[in-house]
């Protein structure tokens, strides 16, 4: 007898799906005026902004380039640049 099961998902296996290819603009972290407010980490819909001690960056494998981090950065230390492919 062949035992069968339903389709289960492995936790966090979506990381295999690199959504960075969706991007038309990318955030650039300038590392100049950062105040460590951490907002860019909190407001990223994909949860891929990381860092500490005024040095933050984004995981471009997944960043969809929505621009929320740049829009919300209170000191304009993140800018959006057109993606060149």
């Amino acid at each position: 007898m062949q035992t069968t099961k339903t389709l289960y998902g492995e936790p966090g296996s979506s990381v295999q799906n690199k959504t960075g290819s969706w991007r038309t603009e990318r955030p650039v972290f300038l590392h100049k005026t950062c105040t460590d407010c951490f907002l860019c980490v909190l407001v990223c819909p994909d949860g891929v902004v990381f860092g500490s001690n005024k040095i933050y960056d984004v995981d471009l494998d997944y960043c969809k380039g929505c621009g929320i981090c740049a829009e919300e950065c209170p000191v304009k230390d993140i800018v959006m640049e057109r993606e060149v492919k």
């Binding site: 289960y8 998902g9 492995e10 936790p11």
Partner: peptide, 9 residues
């Protein structure tokens, strides 16, 4: 042992 039940196929 977290698994995802009820996936989209």
């Amino acid at each position: 042992n977290p698994a995802t039940f009820g996936m989209l196929a």
